Simulated assay, not measured.
Amino acid sequence: MLQGGYQSVLEARSRDEFRSEVIRFAQSLEFQTVSAITVVDHTLAQSEFITIDNCPVGYSDVMHAPEFGRRDPVMQHCKRNSMPIVWDRQTYAQHGASDIWESQAQFGYSTGICLALHLPEGRHFVLGVDRDRPLPSDKVELTRMVADLQLFAVHAVDTALRVLLPEQKSADSPRLTPRELECLNWTMEGKTAWEVGAILSITERTAVLHINNAMHKLGCTNKHQAVLKALRLGLIR
Rank of each mutant, 00 (worst) to 15 (best):
A207E: 13
G122R: 05
P174L: 00
L117G: 04
I199D: 00
V196G: 06
C78G: 11
A230S: 05
A65P: 05
I211H: 00
S103V: 03
L233Q: 11
A226P: 00
G234L: 01
P178R: 07
V157N: 12
V154I: 12
H118N: 08
D138Q: 05
D99A: 10
K223N: 15
L165G: 06
H77E: 02
P120D: 08
R179A: 13
Q94I: 01
W101M: 07
R162M: 12
K169N: 13
V154D: 13
L228Y: 03
T206A: 04
G128P: 13
C220I: 00
D130L: 08
V140T: 13
I211W: 00
P134F: 04
S47N: 05
V227P: 07
S98I: 02
E182W: 01
L165C: 04
T111I: 00
A147C: 13
L200D: 01
R144S: 12
L2W: 09
A97G: 04
L115Y: 08
F18A: 06
G219D: 02
N54G: 12
A116E: 15
V22K: 08
Y109A: 09
A230H: 06
G190N: 08
A198P: 01
Q7Y: 03
E121N: 06
H210I: 05
A160S: 09
N222Q: 04
V9H: 11
G197F: 04
T51P: 07
R89H: 10
E48Y: 04
L149A: 03
R175D: 11
A116W: 07
Q106E: 13
G197M: 00
V154A: 00
A93G: 02
Y59A: 12
R232S: 11
S8E: 05
L119S: 09
G4N: 14
R175K: 10
E195T: 01
V9D: 10
A116P: 14
S60F: 01
H224M: 12
T221V: 13
S20T: 07
G190T: 13
N213M: 02
L44S: 11
F107P: 03
F107I: 14
D72L: 09
R24Y: 03
S170Y: 02
V9M: 01
